[in-house]
Amino acid sequence: MLICPSYKIFGVRLEGSAKMKVPGGKMVEVKVEFGEAVTKARILGDFFMYPDTALEGIESLLVGTQPQESEAAIAKRISTLVKLEGATMIGLTPEAIANVVKRAIENAMESNKA
């Protein structure tokens, strides 16, 4: 029997989500669709972001995220984009999004093992 990490199975589309209450901030939930990397990401919650279109930019940025990528690296990418777009987050941080993205990916992979 060939044993390999479930997320490397070609053509398999997994789904996972995770959420957290940002300390001193708001609720954030991330839903991912996942093949060998993230193919779709959706960020939900009661946070504030100005301009609102910046959130779609972050969701697009997360497409292609590999499971090996560290939380810090994901946070850095988000932070760079936020600065580039001149966006402001209230009740949410790049680090919080990265943390939830990582857990959403892990949950997607776990769901495939189950």
Binding site: E29, I43, L44, G45, D46, F47, M49, D52, L55
Partner: peptide, 9 residues
């Protein structure tokens, strides 16, 4: 609901 929330959730 807020701009970034899910209606169903």
């Amino acid at each position: 609901i807020g701009r970034f929330q899910s209606m169903e959730e």
